[in-house]
Amino acid sequence: MPAVCRRALAAIAMCALFTSLGCSPVLPTPRSDVEKTDVPRPAPRWGIVIHGGAGVLDRASLSPEREAETRAVLTASLEAGHGILAKGGSSLDAVTAAIRILEDSPLFNAGKGAVFTHDGTNELDAALMNGHTREAGAVAGLRHVRNPIALARAVMEKSPHVMMIGEGAERFAEQEGLALVPESYFYTEERWQALQRALAAEKKAPPPPQQGKPQSFWESPAGRDSKFGTVGAVALDQAGHLAAGTSTGGMTNKRFGRVGDSPIIGAGTYADEGCAVSATGHGEYFIRYTVARDVCARVEYSGMGLGAAADRVVMDILVKAGGEGGIIAMDAQGNVAMPFNSKGMYRGTMGADGIASVAIFRDP
């Protein structure tokens, strides 16, 4: 008798035995039924966080009309990034889209609204990092690239390098077909007048501080008439991958080819599988204290939560050093931190619930 028949007869006999004993045989449940009755998995946490710079921001310095306009652009930036994430798009795409909105607005110190250097030019920097792969792209000293964040991404994806600067970076932008604009595109009267005030204040500058006593940026000629208008974004997509990006026009009245922290990976921009950070503030301090990487390293190695790690770096270490500014950060669980030690910071968040939240001042 074939083996298959023997197994069938054995099964029939077993059923007959159970029936004679008044019992019902317990048959194995098909795997598909087990899967259907599994406990539902919680929906993944994902979302985006943005900033539009930190600095001397108080209600007296911002008209209701300007505040409303600023909040509208911040909201549009959040919606651009969130729209990509909601469709299952990547955190890298979301960060890039959100920052482009801010770069195209004259309200922020990046792209169209970039501040002027001492020589009356605009020099733009940006960086982008993929936390999933640790790939990164950065650019500095740009004068004709409309959206520096797009060039930073091209450096990351279409070159073997991490950073390009100046004319070489712009030649690469032209080669990749990115939008180039005349220098006049970046001119805004507001930024030009800020430079004139900084130049006038520079002539009346107090003597340099005594050695060992760091001078607050806000006490410097440029600082008294500036805010840190750098823009940035961090995002967590539905696949659980993080990304971070930052774009800036630098400091009003900067000179000698100065580059701040924004395009420096680990200083103003950083992302890995567990943490992503974009910073805004006095770049020299953020570079010296490798702020973005320090926050993520504390999360990775010390077991600190994101909020505690961010507060330790921004509200303690930087404050003691004399550095001012803030960060936005997100971890792989979707937790968000936005500490700043200045008077205000343009910032916003938008999660899976689709509700945009925007703030400027320290108080609600």
Rank of each mutant, 00 (worst) to 15 (best):
G354A: 03
F186R: 00
P221S: 07
G166L: 08
D261S: 08
M156C: 05
G177Y: 09
N109Q: 08
D353A: 13
T269L: 09
R312S: 13
D272Y: 08
Q211I: 15
A297G: 11
A309G: 02
A86E: 08
M350P: 11
A76E: 14
A201S: 13
G229W: 02
S24P: 08
P30W: 00
G88F: 10
K87L: 13
L178I: 08
S90N: 07
E67I: 07
P214Y: 02
I355E: 08
L62I: 15
G177A: 05
A16N: 11
F108G: 01
F116D: 00
R362H: 12
L128G: 02
M163W: 02
A179G: 07
E65Q: 07
E79D: 10
P148V: 04
L78T: 09
S105F: 03
A222F: 10
D125M: 02
G274V: 15
T75E: 15
T252R: 03
T19L: 14
M338L: 11
E69I: 10
I355R: 13
M156Y: 07
E176S: 05
G303A: 01
E170M: 04
I99W: 07
G177Q: 05
H241V: 06
L178R: 05
P64S: 03
N122H: 15
H161Q: 12
G111H: 07
G250M: 04
S216N: 12
Y289N: 06
P208D: 06
V115F: 00
R258P: 00
V259T: 12
N130G: 03
A243P: 01
L27M: 11
A138I: 04
Q210E: 14
A179L: 13
Y346F: 15
L128D: 01
M156L: 06
R293M: 11
S342K: 07
D58M: 08
T133A: 05
L9G: 11
T117G: 04
H144N: 10
H132R: 09
Q215V: 12
P2G: 12
A138Q: 02
P364W: 00
R362M: 08
P28H: 00
V73W: 01
P209Y: 03
Q211H: 12
